[in-house]
Design a protein around this nucleic acid. Structure first.
Length: 639
RNA sequence: GCCGGUGUAGCUCAGUCGGUAGAGCAACUGAUUUGUAAUCAGUAGGUCGCGGGUUCAAGUCCCGCCGCCGGCCCCA
């Protein structure tokens, strides 16, 4: 007999070799057994069909746990792969993991899937669920596995198996359902029937192993839920989220345009420009408060600069080169980043340790020649401006500067209500500088995250070759994550640009450079904010803070006075003078998500009042104009 | 750049089998003067993304290019 310990601490005895499924049914209850999908035994996730061979801590996962949803999506990926191979003979399988919202499976075949193909796949996959086939786990030797997949002509599978074998694995776990087999660590649910429902969402090309030199695979995206209702809720949520898409709102609220003659570069309307300028002014004020100084540097530089910075060698493909008529060569480039010019600026004069930390802030326009296929809305553009800054400091100041920055960023994101997640990227294999320096740098960055209790994910080896970094991601309306803020330590720049300061010891030292941004880029930040607020910007940021509507034309004279008075105070106010009904004008203001609609009728004219209505419908009732001004005075200033 | 989808009025979209383009909203004009989400009527608006080709005839079929959308790669 062996002892099984349950999550609540209770213990039960069972015969050695009892499967988990049987144990749960006989030892705990039939209800749980029916709902169970997989189990965690001594910390390892396993199938219910696995026997209990030793004393174990056992946790059972049912349809209620998020882990189970992930599991059935993995099950679904297997099912989809099996029906694809049945429907499209000759298609080779590769890999198919679950993702945050569903799963995908990459196939190799000559012809891409058509939308009709995807419908067929979805229908077949759901039939496979109805067949309720058991998932069967077996183990075979690596040699057998290679023979098995070679026999099937699965070249990609063979390649993966060989890689796994090269890492020292002796056996391979196979999972089959029906007559289809794949290798996979598992676990899987008991049967295909437990998946519930599969929805195929889209397909796209994807490079084998993510490398553009490799063959292109056909990726099928899908998702799975325990029941149709949950799927429908998900689909509805996606539809709702699309309404918040900044590209859609950008049109509806008249914020920006794009033209085919300038792909990836926005035209900003007066309203969009207000957003842009308001954020710019806000960041200028904040950086000044934080001890930064703002500078402007040239937009166009000779390649000499890029040769020193290393961009000419490593980043040239992404730079817009400019012809110099005199030399006849493309010797100049629009700057893709501010750092090199900041380094030049630092070098204009001798610096004392007393000057440090020197914090240079710049909001200049940058150009990057991004791949045409990667452009999209305001989140990925070719022309943009960062709230960029470089901090030149002594090594002893790094910790303090990083802490100040993370607090600064937290303040900014909190002020607009953005949730972010931090990623800490450590030393890559190819790197510059000795291990002691890296130790110090990584300790400094991670120490700040720990001290400030910022939850973060470690990305081992993903740091830049010149130093570790922390990135700050925020999700858009359809769940895609975008990097906004970043702070990167750089030990290389000072060397390449021969930057020095005179220390207390009267000797020359190299400063450390911190690259950092909070908005990331104004363009991307505005996109994210637009989706975050669903276009209903708070009063301080809203392009139009109040729109005045009159009940009848006879109040227009007074309404014009109100408009002028509010504008004189610096508020962004419009007057709707169209001869429309009150309802029509109010509707218009609501559609444009204006924070305040000021209704003016005879009562207001007489009382020197306005009747404000908040976006969303809240009627604040008639109040003196001065009272409304006091209200705006609280909400309209930069946070 | 690669794979797929897509492009018709300012916006959202319809346009059948190839037979020379339509609606709603917006705009403009007139009437209406209304108290918290659409007053009524009329007018105007299009080189169907661009360039070739097939055809008696192309928004519609074919080819190329461009843009946009979803991914891949990359990244703020």
């Amino acid at each position: 007999m062996i002892t099984v310990t349950l999550p609540d601490g209770s213990q039960k005895q069972t015969a050695r070799g009892t499967t988990i499924g049987d144990f749960v049914r006989d030892g705990i209850g039939a209800g749980l057994a029916k709902a169970a999908l997989f189990a965690r035994v001594n910390g390892q996730d396993v199938d219910l069909a696995r026997p209990l061979t030793e004393d174990a801590k056992l946790q059972v996962f049912t349809t209620k746990s998020p882990e189970a949803l992930e599991l059935i999506r993995h099950d679904a990926a297997h099912v989809v792969a099996s029906v694809v191979q049945r429907l499209f003979p000759g298609t080779q399988v590769t890999i198919g993991p679950s993702t945050e919202e569903g799963f995908y499976y990459d196939f190799f075949r000559e012809k891409p899937f058509t939308p009709e193909d995807l419908e067929k796949i979805e229908a077949e996959a759901n039939k496979e669920i109805a067949r309720n086939l058991p998932f069967v786990r077996t183990e075979i030797s690596m040699e057998e596995a290679i023979r098995l997949f070679e026999g099937k002509g699965e070249k990609f599978k063979v390649e993966i198996v060989k890689d796994i074998a090269a890492k020292g694995a002796k056996t391979l776990t196979l999972y089959s359902h029906g007559d289809w087999v794949d290798f996979c660590l598992g676990p899987h649910g008991p049967t295909t029937g437990r998946i519930g429902v599969i929805k195929i969402l889209s397909s796209s090309g994807a490079y084998w192993r993510g490398d553009h030199r490799n063959p292109m695979l056909q990726r099928v995206y899908g998702t799975a839920f325990f029941d149709k209702k949950a799927l429908q809720e998900y689909l509805t949520r996606i539809e709702e989220a699309k309404k918040r898409d900044h590209r859609k709102l950008g049109k509806e609220l008249d914020l920006f345009h794009f033209h085919p003659f300038a792909p990836g570069s926005a035209f900003w309307t007066p309203k969009g420009t207000t957003l842009y300028q308001t954020l710019s002014n806000w960041m200028r004020r904040l950086t000044a408060e934080q001890g930064y100084v703002e500078i402007k540097t040239p937009l166009l530089f000779n390649k000499g600069l890029w040769e020193i910075s290393g961009h000419w060698g490593k980043y040239k493909e992404n730079m817009f080169l400019v012809l110099d008529n005199e030399s006849g060569e493309h010797d100049f480039s629009l700057k893709p980043m501010n750092c090199p010019s900041h380094h030049l600026y630092f070098g204009f004069k001798r610096h004392s340790y007393r000057d440090l930390p020197l914090r240079l802030h710049t909001q200049d326009v940058l150009h990057r020649n991004e791949a045409a296929g990667s452009l999209g809305g305001l989140t990925r553009v070719r022309q943009f401006a960062q709230d960029d800054a470089h901090i030149y400091c002594m090594e002893s100041q790094i910790g303090d500067e990083v802490r100040r920055f993370v607090q600064f960023l937290d303040h900014v994101y909190n002020a607009v209500g953005l949730q972010y997640s931090a990623k800490f990227s450590t030393r890559p294999e190819q790197r510059l500088g000795d291990d002691a320096t890296w130790d110090q740098a990584e300790t400094a960055l991670e120490g700040v995250l720990k001290t400030l209790n910022v939850p973060y994910e470690v990305k081992p080896g993903e740091g830049a070759f010149y130093g570790p970094k922390i990135d700050f991601d925020v999700s858009d309306s359809i769940g895609r994550k975008w990097q906004l803020g970043t702070i990167q330590l750089d030990y290389l720049a000072a060397q390449r640009f021969d930057l020095t300061y005179i220390g207390e010891d009267n000797a020359e030292h190299r400063p450390v450079v911190l690259h950092r941004a909070i908005f990331g880029s104004f363009e991307r930040f505005i996109a994210i904010l637009t989706e975050h607020f669903a276009g209903a910007f708070p009063a301080w940021l809203a392009p139009v803070q109040a729109v005045i509507v009159t009940v009848a034309d006879r109040q227009l004279d007074y309404a014009r006075q109100v408009k002028e008075q509010l504008r004189a105070k610096g508020y962004r106010v419009e007057l709707d003078e169209r001869g429309q009904t009150l309802n029509a004008k109010i509707r218009e203001a609501q559609i444009h998500k204006i924070p305040y609609t000021l209704v003016i009728g005879d009562n207001e004219v007489q009382a020197g009042a306005v009747a404000p209505r908040r976006y969303g419908g809240e009627d604040l009732k008639s109040m003196k104009l001065e009272d409304f001004q006091a209200l705006l005075a609280k909400e309209a200033p930069l946070p």
